[in-house]
Each structure stands twice: as structure tokens, then as C-alpha cells.
Design a protein around this nucleic acid. Structure first.
Length: 233
DNA sequence: CGCCAGGCAACAC
DNA sequence: GTGTTGCATGGC
């Protein structure tokens, strides 16, 4: 099984995932009305771009349900905005994002991210696209968060490697899960068409598969790709 | 109760 | 460059 075949099979099994979820736009497009991908693309407006980026920080090491709570609390406080976040007292911001866990660390990360966004040049309804290294220079933004922001916020395909990717790629025999982030990213990108839709959707499908079947303790018994997965042989 | 969840920076070696 | 640790909530 190669990279493209795994993508096609997961798409066939789970259907388009419609990532990235935007709590502020629940009910508008995407699967379950939580996303924007099918028939669309990344957000074209500054609010959506920032919401995806802030969500990428808030979900670090945390279940999305908790990150989403924090995003909603920012929305309810009228603070899901770079200017507002940058102006909040650290402990006030921390109290708002508390449900996401690591709240003191994440409050600081959100301020760093907000200052960065305040320095971006508006372009059309969005922003001029930042470089990957610009994102990686930010305190609190590592490779996965940078690639999530590039792909899902700015529409620049940069394959996202996370624990699910490592696990699924490792078990299906596509890669060594202990390899470095950059090696895994380039391996995935080499194995796939250079397409925003495929990068965005494939990673979302990997997360779905990783949550439902290919868990830390896998459920190979009901796994639809068991027959072509080296792990279960 | 313990384990887990869409990481990252700081530090040790 | 690789390995370890602190950061913390909410669901199961």
C-alpha cells in the first residue's frame, strides 16, 4: 500500500471530514456543519484565518473538545481577535482559555501569535502568507502547529505530522514512526500529489482513523484496512 | 482511581 | 541530535 492508496481508502471509508472545525461558524458548510472544506477551501477572511490558528495552539497536547471550549469562551468574551488578545492581562487571558489546559503557557502563546498577526500585511480579505520559518520563529509554535496553520488557515499545503500520523504511517508500513518530524513530512509530501485538498483531507482522515480504530491500543478486529496493514499481519 | 488527548520549550547529555 | 520533564483540563 502506498501513500495515495491509503488516502483513497480512508476517504472511501470515512468520507470527507471537512476540517478544520470553526466553532464560530457551526452550521455553515462542512461535515456536521463544523467545517468549511467540502466545496470550499481554507477561510478567506481574517477572522477565520485567526480562529484556525488560535485553535491550532489551543489544541496542543489537548483534546479538541477542550480546545473548542476555550475558543468559545474567547468568542463569548469578544476576544477572539489579535488586537483584543494582545491587550488582555495574562491572567485574564489564562482564565478564559482555562478549559484547554496548560492555560498559563497557552495564554502566552496566544499573545505571541496575536502580535505576529498584528504585524501581517492585509491582502484582499485575508493576509499576505507568512513563511514556514516565520511561524517556527514564534515562541509556542512548533512544526505541527506551523504546518496546521499553513495548511488549514492559510491554504498553503504543508503536510501535518502528529501522533496519529506517526502511528498510522508506522503501522501501515509507510514510514518509521520514530523518524524526525521533517523526514516524515517530506516522506508524506513525496508520496502524495502536491495538492492542498489532499494534504488537508488526508491528515483529517488520519486523525479520524487514529481516533476510531488505530488508537494507541488499536482495534484491528474491526479495522477496514486490516488486510493491507502490516501491523495486524 | 489511571489513562488519554490533533505539542512545545527548556534543559541535560 | 536525542531524551526527559513541566505544563493542566475534562472525558471515560
Amino acid at each position: 500500500m502506498d501513500w495515495t492508496e491509503l488516502y483513497r481508502r480512508l476517504l472511501d471509508i470515512y468520507g470527507p471530514r471537512g476540517w478544520w472545525p470553526l466553532p464560530s461558524r457551526a452550521g455553515v458548510g462542512g461535515r456536521d456543519g463544523r467545517g468549511y472544506l467540502p466545496g470550499g477551501g481554507p477561510p478567506s477572511d481574517r477572522e477565520g484565518i485567526f480562529e484556525v490558528s488560535a485553535g491550532a495552539v489551543l489544541t496542543q497536547g489537548t483534546a479538541w473538545s477542550n480546545a473548542e471550549r476555550a475558543l468559545r469562551r474567547l468568542l463569548d468574551a469578544g476576544a477572539l481577535d489579535p488586537g483584543r488578545i494582545a491587550g488582555l492581562r495574562p491572567d485574564t487571558l489564562a482564565s478564559i482559555v482555562r478549559p484547554a489546559g496548560y492555560y498559563n503557557v497557552k495564554a502566552r502563546k496566544l499573545v505571541e501569535l496575536s502580535r505576529f498577526f498584528l504585524g501581517l500585511r492585509p491582502a484582499g480579505s485575508g493576509y499576505s502568507t507568512p513563511g514556514r520559518s516565520d511561524l517556527l520563529d514564534l515562541w509556542g509554535v512548533g512544526p505541527e502547529t506551523a504546518d496546521s496553520i499553513l495548511t488549514y488557515a492559510f491554504g498553503v499545503p504543508s503536510f501535518v505530522i502528529d501522533e496519529y500520523s506517526r502511528r498510522v504511517f508506522g503501522r501501515t508500513g509507510l514510514a518509521d514512526p520514530r523518524d524526525s518530524y521533517e523526514n516524515l513530512r517530506s516522506a508524506a509530501e513525496r508520496g502524495l500529489p502536491d495538492s492542498w485538498e489532499i494534504y488537508a483531507e488526508f491528515h483529517a482522515l488520519i486523525v479520524e482513523h487514529g481516533k476510531t480504530r488505530c488508537r494507541k491500543r488499536p482495534d484491528c478486529g474491526t479495522c477496514p484496512i486490516r488486510k493491507t496493514c502490516v501491523y495486524s499481519l
